[in-house]
């Protein structure tokens, strides 16, 4: 089995299994803790509406916070939208997913995706540097934060190198790219990157808690 065959085959399969099972474990493990029934009289019924609202409204901060958190808004949007574009709108990725699932959709021009990929990588570097220099971020950062940053950066960098055929044989570069994706898949459920899914119940509970008190989250 060549490195590429390994990366494409067992590595990706197993890391995907770990990704899915790991995230289920993270969610189920938290879910199994106590769910306290709230006996107080709600100010507003149907608190779940507040929860649902918060899941979406927290994609953008309240106006008075915009100026103070501009870095996070800018770098955060570039990072998250950028990852979406690179993962789901790059033609070879779409083809890869089509071969696995039969689903298909149109992609964006490769040059544009490359540009977005570079911007996305830059946002991660910016986050990394800010983590090192900003007193608040430096104080609360853990190894998880730095590793999560680098492990997210890896597929972007290896992807760009593979696209550019830079630094080695194309097959080897592609294999390294796929292995870095596998590493990311394994890392997500083990780290703070699990927020890709836990952000939903987390935002929901605050929105619902405030919602039943008549406060908009």
């Amino acid at each position: 089995m060549t490195l590429l065959e390994f990366a494409r085959g067992p590595a990706l399969q197993w890391s995907t299994i770990i990704l899915v099972l790991g995230l289920i474990l993270r969610i189920a493990g938290a879910w199994l803790l106590a769910h306290d029934k709230d006996y107080s009289r709600p100010r507003v019924d149907a608190a779940w509406r507040g929860g649902l609202r918060a899941v979406f409204s927290r994609f953008w901060p309240h106006q008075p916070f915009v100026r103070q958190t501009w870095f996070h808004i800018l770098a955060g949007y570039v990072l998250h939208v950028g990852l979406f574009v690179v993962v789901f709108l790059y033609a070879p990725h779409i083809a890869f997913i089509r071969d696995l699932t039969g689903l298909n959709w149109p992609g964006l021009p490769a040059n544009l995706v490359l540009f977005v990929g570079a911007l996305t990588a830059a946002s991660l570097v910016a986050f990394f540097v800010r983590r090192l220099v900003h007193p608040v971020m430096r104080t609360i950062s853990t190894l998880d934060d730095y590793l999560s940053n680098l492990i997210t950066l890896a597929p972007l960098v290896t992807g760009i190198l593979a696209y550019a055929h830079f630094g080695g044989r194309y097959e080897t570069l592609l294999a390294i790219h796929l292995l870095s994706v596998s590493l990311l898949f394994v890392w997500i459920p083990l780290s703070k990157l699990a927020h890709v899914i836990t952000f939903i119940p987390s935002r929901f509970q605050l929105g619902a808690w405030l919602g039943r008190r008549g406060v908009k989250a």
Binding site: R26, G29, A30, W31, L32, L33, A34, H35, D36, M137, I140, S141, T142, D145, K192, A194, H195, T198, F199, P201, S202, Q205, L206, W209
Partner: peptide, 13 residues
């Protein structure tokens, strides 16, 4: 509680 667990699981620092 479960709610707190979700919150502690979600902080991105």
């Amino acid at each position: 509680t479960a709610d707190m667990a979700f919150e502690l699981e979600s902080c991105v620092h």
